[in-house]
Amino acid sequence: MTELVTGTGEPAPAPAATQPGAEPSVARVSQWADIRHRFFANKLAVVGLAIIVVLVLTALLAPVLAPYDPLKQDLTATLQAPGGKHLLGTDALGRDQLSRLIYGSRIAVVVGLASILVALTIGIVLGALAGYFGRWVDTVIMRAADIFFAFPLLIGSIVIILLMGRGVLPVVLSLGIFQWATFARLLRSQILSVREMDFVHAARALGAGRSRIIRKHILPNSVTSVLVYGTSNVGIAIVAEASLSYLGVGVDPEVAEWGNMISAGRGFMGVKDFMWTYPSLAIVITALGFILLGNGLRDALDPKLR
């Protein structure tokens, strides 16, 4: 396609443009149809989407899917190998591993999505302020971002959790607070490039006000990449959340949660490996799912890859 891009700059028009008078209503959805087509043409993206759909369904239907109560101890059947009545075996307290794994997906989905939502909200607001206003606003926000950036995610989160106490909410907030800086930076750089594009100049030349320019022109053209990046980062947040639990500073150790399960299997490494391999696998597959989904969305939405 080099000819099409290196020439005087006029690629061949899209096929639709050459057929005069096509159905307007069809044309309106075609941009999304185009994106959908590109997304579903990408096999890895579809795999990622499938993983996430399965994960979310599992979390929603956990009470239906789980064969046992994940918290119910059965001291007559502890540390049973997979198979028989317990498909994935039981832990040291005789709790059904499969049920705990299924219920664990709820924590993963909730904490993963909620913490990224917190991070995106902070990141988008601050990034937009920095990118649009520039000058000292930019300097202050970006230096603050540098400070948050310098903290390793887990260390920073542990500090907050130590201050707030354990639980789902502190985990969500702490992971959110230590991830916003990436999104703010990304949005800021997007805004800086979009702000100089001619369609923004054109809107200003028409007399459009600040808020209209941000709402209609700058954000729609800069925020998608941040949202897409956020999708990929849900996986990272889930890994971080499980790590916190594994380290004993995440959710309550009683709760059916993947990090807790790995932690419970820690003492049985090499002896009862099924205790930690299944939850580990769940974490890896989930994180991979979000990353594949994010990459697929990025490629589908990026006009440069057309």
């Binding site: 080099t2 000819e3 099409l4 290196t6 020439g7 005087t8 700059g9 006029e10 690629p11 061949a12």
Partner: peptide
Amino acid sequence: GESGSGKSV
């Protein structure tokens, strides 16, 4: 040729 004429390809 113009863009898309195949001259560069």
